[in-house]
Design a protein around this nucleic acid. Sequence first.
DNA 1: CCAGCGTTCATATCTTCGTATGAGCGGCGC
DNA 2: GCGCCGCTCATACGAAGATATGAACGCTGG
Lengths: 204, 204
Amino acid sequence: MPEAAIVHIVDDDASLGEALASLFRSVGLEPRLYGSAQAFLDAELPDAPGCLVLDVRLPGLSGLDFQAQLAQFGIGLPVVLMTGHGDIPMSVRGMKAGAVDFLPKPFREQDMLDAVTTGIERDRQRRAADGGRRALEERFATLSPRERQVMALVTAGKLNKQVAGELSLSEITVKIHRGAAMRKMGARSLADLVRMAEALHVGA
Amino acid sequence: MPEAAIVHIVDDDASLGEALASLFRSVGLEPRLYGSAQAFLDAELPDAPGCLVLDVRLPGLSGLDFQAQLAQFGIGLPVVLMTGHGDIPMSVRGMKAGAVDFLPKPFREQDMLDAVTTGIERDRQRRAADGGRRALEERFATLSPRERQVMALVTAGKLNKQVAGELSLSEITVKIHRGAAMRKMGARSLADLVRMAEALHVGA
DNA sequence: CCAGCGTTCATATCTTCGTATGAGCGGCGC
DNA sequence: GCGCCGCTCATACGAAGATATGAACGCTGG
């Protein structure tokens, strides 16, 4: 059974927000209502897959600007945009910014559900990929500076002897750092380490 | 100096097509005109970075359907959509399908140029990435079946001895295949071979 | 039929890797 | 100051890898 998903609804129209909330509840999704972009930013982001439903017309800044701002903050939550008075350039801008969908009001409930479902699925995959990456980064963080250098050169295909030359070390020392890097990264083979370095962009 | 880029224009309105063609020529891009989707498909695709400008309303099939069809044929050429009578769902569909932009007529010339420039840049990068991949696949195609098996297991991190066990071979034979694979693939280190295997999805 | 290729294996040699054991040095914090 | 940690290096041994030489078998295509 998949983890419970949360739908964040940012809309200044409370009655529409409630309608959406009840729609999402009816299919087993947990809705959260926010009256403004700021209210969403102030709230804690739960550690669960989710999706953001955003009205383009918001008090303060536009939903499109808000969308761009989220990306700047590193919030990768998928966004579904909706609007009552939209035009094509607006929708294109939203989609270019990575929105899952752009729904003109009035929309069919099923379209909204489809969009949110797609967004949640996208978030699930992003979170899974991110999770693996973060675990890698945590392990990489435990490496000493020397160990990182050695790891970078070794995964670039250099021999211990060559690494020793480039770093002005003895080959023995390189072996020690290499072994430590393998152990700390949890790599059971050089191939593993190479793939980890690839995912971490080490050496780039 | 970057390679000359080609703009493919598919539009049944010849006068508009000509206007676009002259616009693109004015900025040093080579335009090619097609009166229908079929005419484009029948033509030879030049080996140069390019971009496809497509009217959504076409005789026969719609520009959106054509766009989907191109993807099926494995034609990754970036698409810029334009239309005289479009709506938001249409633009969203086009953008979801990966269009670079969706321009309602009348559009500013600069917007079209920006879109096409973006498309060409995207194509340049795609072609560069694809080129590297194809070169890899060509080399991989020269490997004998055994060499591929050995390469898969070796890049999975197994020792020669383990590979020999799994394939019921002697360790010496494994070494020979391994060496042949390295030579044929042009890998100068195991790390190289691992990255190649990764790019080729070998072992997946 | 035979040349070529892929596959298999042995022997031999050299290099490289992995790791353990032991040890010295410098910085940082309690 | 003393312990911890990172960094350094040496010696030593066994495992693993790379390569060359030589050789055998079967299949396929000219």
